[in-house]
């Protein structure tokens, strides 16, 4: 269990993390979601006592990280895949960590095996691909067989097989009763792995909800219609109390209706339909709307931004995709 209370981090004039309070519970995968620059990595670094909070506290099973004896046995973290010495072999990098926490050496071989790096265990880690580096980082997180695991964007750089593997690994670890905290900026990825969701934007908490709730509340369903007699169709829909929104490419979108109902209505008035389909807005869109709101709030809020910071920080999906 990880508890955050009013956690705040300022870098000069920039508030990277803004009074975050939430709890990460055992037995489930908790997704930590936010656009680039939202403050996810900073929050995670503060959880591990690498960055000092400006104010607020983090407690790991009721204790401060610095008070943990042999912390790798409590909490394992993958922060940055490159956080190893490139001139040292994968095996030796893990051995250094194991020894510092009195973890038996055989565990090094075990975790290398678990992440599929046994064949390159004696190779210098600087030659590793991004995906291999990520696996090595995951191996280091698993080294102490900890109850709490934290992964900062673990699927970064993994191939589809690797992504599938890490998803299953996280689910399996959670099923064993462990606390899993995983960050991502992809809602679609979280929808597949996480049971619980914490969304932040501009360092502020935007949502702390179960995944099921989030899906239920945020997945808008609607019907898409296309017709050569668009004007007549729209009048007909309006006359029957449906709100039809023009959505480009000659299509209309209708909320709160079924395809059956609209199909029958069109047939009764002999309107030709070229398309009649049920649509579901993606969770990604819901997430974008949520975080875009945070950005806007910030820009018009009372916060005074210093010069050179841009109007509101990076907007979701604008420039940072596919890094």
């Amino acid at each position: 269990m990880i508890e955050l209370e009013g956690l705040t981090k300022r870098f000069g004039a920039k508030t990277a993390v803004d009074h975050l309070s939430f709890t990460v519970r055992p037995g489930v995968v908790t997704g930590f979601l936010g656009p680039n620059g939202a403050g996810k990595s900073t929050t995670m670094r503060m959880m591990l006592d690498l960055d000092n909070p400006t104010s607020g506290t983090v407690r790991i099973d009721g204790r401060h990280y610095r008070e943990l004896q042999e912390p790798l046995k409590y909490i394992g973290a993958l922060l940055d895949a490159k956080a190893m010495h490139g001139g040292r072999s994968a095996y030796n990098n893990l051995l250094c960590l194991a020894q510092s926490n009195r973890i038996p050496e055989r565990r090094v071989g075990e975790v290398l095996d678990l992440v599929g790096l046994t064949a390159v265990a004696k190779k210098k880690s600087k030659g590793f691909s991004l995906g291999m580096g990520q696996r090595l980082g995951i191996a280091s997180a698993l080294l102490g067989d900890p109850e709490i695991l934290m992964f900062d964007e673990p699927v970064n750089g993994l191939d589809p097989e690797g992504i599938h593997w890490i998803r299953n690994l996280m689910k399996r670890l959670a099923a064993e009763g462990r606390t899993i905290f995983v960050s991502s900026h992809l809602m679609s990825e979280m929808a597949l792995t996480a049971d619980h969701l914490i969304v932040i934007g501009q360092g502020k908490l935007l949502a702390d909800t179960s995944m099921a709730d989030f899906i239920q509340r945020n997945s808008r369903s609607y019907v898409r219609l296309r017709s050569p007699q668009q004007e007549r169709l729209r009048d007909l829909l309006h006359a029957n109390g449906f709100v039809a929104v023009e959505a480009g490419g000659g299509t209309l979108e209708v909320d709160g209706a079924t395809t059956e109902k609209l199909g029958e209505l069109a047939a009764a008035h002999q309107i030709v339909l070229h398309e009649l389909s049920a649509q579901r807005a993606s969770l990604e869109e819901a997430f974008m709307q949520m975080t875009a709101g945070a950005v806007e709030y910030h820009a018009h809020g009372t916060d005074i931004h210093g010069g050179g910071d841009g109007p509101a920080g990076p907007r979701w999906g604008e420039t940072f995709e596919g890094v």
Binding site: R45, L48, D49, L50, Y65, R66, L68, P71, L72, A77, L79, D80, K82, A83, M84, H85, G86, G87, N93, C96, L97, S100, N101, S140
Partner: peptide
């Protein structure tokens, strides 16, 4: 210095926070 240039420092301090 290599702790810093490699980024190992974070892994090291997470293992030995004192």
């Amino acid at each position: 210095g290599t702790e810093y240039s490699s980024g190992m420092i974070r892994t090291s301090l997470a293992a030995v926070p004192q």
